[in-house]
Amino acid sequence: MNIFRLVGDMSHLLAIIILLMKMWKSRSVAGISGKSQILFAIVFTTRYLDLFTSFVSIYNTSMKVFFIGTSYVTVYFIYQHFKPTYDSNHDTFRVEFLIVPVGGLAFLVNHEFSLLEILWTFSIYLESVAILPQLFMVSKTGEAESITSHYLFALGSYRALYLLNWIYRYYFEGFFDLIAVVAGCVQTILYCDFFYLYITKVLKGKKISLPA
C-alpha cells in the first residue's frame, strides 16, 4: 500500500459519502444519473466476487463490502426512496451501447479465460466508462450543483491517483497490469474536461453551467 493508492481509495470513499450525504440531506437525487449508479453497482458486484474466493486484508474486504453495499443503497435511493426527485427525462444515455461492447471486449481481451477473470475484466472496462451517463446528464441540463461537482471531482481523482500508484508499483514492486492501466487512462481522460471546469469555476465559487 503506497500513498497514492491510499489517498486514491480515500478519495473514492469520500466521493461515495458525498453522494449519499447530498441525497440524504437534500432529500433529493436531482442531477444524479441513476444509470451511472446502476453501472457502478454492476462494476462492484462483478469485480468483488473474489470476496468468496480470496482474502487480501481486513482493509481490502471491508472496503469491498462498503463499496458494494453503498452502491445498492444509492440505486435504491434513486429508483425508490427519492424517486419523485429523480430527473429521468435528462438521464437518457443508452447504457446498452456501453455494456454490450465492454462485455465483448472483456470476453476477447483478458488475462485468463475463466468466469471470474472475465467478470473482473468486464468490471474494469465498465468502470472506465460508467460515468458517461452522468457527464451526459450534466452536459444535457447544462449545469451541475456544487455538491455534484465535488462528488465528480473526488470520483475522478481516485483513478488518476491510481495511475500514480501503478507507476510507483511498476518501479518499486515490478507490478504491471496492462488491462487496469489502459482502462485507468481512459477513465481519467474522460474526466479531463470536467476537471478543467471544476478548477476554473467551482473552486472560484461558481457552479458549473455550460452555454446552451
Partner: peptide, 10 residues
C-alpha cells in the same frame, strides 16, 4: 521480473 496480475487492489 514483472508481476503481471494479482487483484489486490480495489
Amino acid at each position: 521480473s514483472v508481476v503481471c496480475v494479482s487483484h489486490d487492489e480495489l
